[in-house]
């Protein structure tokens, strides 16, 4: 299946070296999709929220924060040298399906 091929798991390399990195998502109207708008560096979730609202509060009715280190990223185009390609056949086997 084409949609299952050519995926890599982006390497779990840190994206922060000073503070923790937090991915920021906003929605401007309740009818809008949630949008990723980058990330902020902050030592705590509270500090991350303060920063993110200073930058995006005026454009958002919803604002979500997620530790960047907890995001699993899969891509077909990453330049990450440590990305691990996904083998769909192997994954199916591991789920207990026949190939």
């Amino acid at each position: 299946m084409a949609e299952q091929s050519n995926w890599s798991r982006v390497g779990e390399q840190p994206r922060d070296a000073v503070d923790r990195e937090w991915e920021v998502f906003v929605r401007s109207e309740t009818t809008d999709p949630l949008q990723h708008v980058g990330s902020v560096s902050a030592p705590t979730i509270e500090a991350a929220r303060t920063q993110a609202t200073a930058l995006f509060g005026r454009y958002a009715t919803d604002l979500w924060l997620c530790p960047a280190a907890d995001v699993r990223r899969y891509s077909r185009t990453t330049i990450d040298e440590r990305a691990v390609s996904i083998d769909p056949a192997k994954e199916r086997d591991e789920r207990g399906h026949s190939a």
Partner: peptide, 23 residues
Amino acid sequence: NYSLGNVRDRPFSALWDDESNPL
């Protein structure tokens, strides 16, 4: 302390051109 995104996820050119980012 603010980043538009990461070049391992998306090319710089795409991030820089993405004016759907309200900031």
